[in-house]
Write a protein that binds this DNA or RNA. Structure first.
Lengths: 119, 119
DNA sequence: TCCATATATGAATAGGTATTCAAGCGTTAA
DNA sequence: TTAACGCTTGAATACCTATTCATATATGGA
């Protein structure tokens, strides 16, 4: 059986056309998927949720998540590269905080969803 | 070098304590991480973005994403299990649509973030 | 009944990734 | 300079997962 193509080429052409029309740009979708993927890892999500309260150094986060500085540092690097967190160096320590964009709003909306869903 | 524990046990105790206090329940965090992970896969994210427009059958989605019904069906199963989409059977076809909860709001907020960030 | 179609599913494979371990860098204080 | 500390980094391993392929189920029509 050929699964590559449906026999009826497009079953609901108007719908598909309309959906394609209002589809965001590919770059936007990929950007969004990247952020979601980063937040989809429990350790990283916990880091982000922790940083809502105040800026923290790597050791603080390692204590929060019961993890190692190395593991946390690896995760922070990914978050930093994608612009979800920013860092500030002070002596031997590096303080991390949430980036000053709408990530926080996104997180709040996500939490709202998760809490609503539990009920 | 011992990386397990920081020498200074908690460098910013007040901050860590405050963050722990306002940390959501573990179940909520895991729920949220699951949703983010599902949305973090470009194919699945495209499915969700497509379904904002109108309900679609598997073939429609396969056409939208230039994929196979089998691959789409596998993804839809994951989205269905986690309650992000719902399905309705009509004859040989199965129509999928976004679940009637705040996922749509979440997606909008995400898009808002991604678009803002590009600029 | 028999066949074609739309979808679902299980197993296998290939690709991706989180953590660990070991080592390195940069800063501070002696 | 030396040592200690906080952090970073690269490689390796072990785990996870998306897609493919083959097959199965279910519905509708001849």
């Amino acid at each position: 059986m050929n699964q590559e193509i449906c026999q009826v080429n497009l079953i609901h052409e108007e719908c598909v056309a309309a959906a394609q029309q209002q589809m965001p740009q590919l770059a936007t979708i990929e950007q969004l998927a990247t952020v979601y993927k980063l937040l989809g890892e429990p350790s990283r999500l916990k880091i982000m949720l922790s940083l809502r309260t105040c800026e923290m150094c790597v050791c603080d986060l390692a204590a929060m998540l019961d993890s190692t500085p190395s593991a946390i540092s690896h995760q922070l690097k990914l978050l930093r590269i994608s612009g979800l967190v920013q860092s500030r160096k002070k002596g031997k320590m590096v303080y991390y905080s949430l980036a000053k964009n709408s990530v926080q709003q996104m997180l709040l909306e996500g939490l709202n969803y998760a809490v609503e869903k539990k009920a």
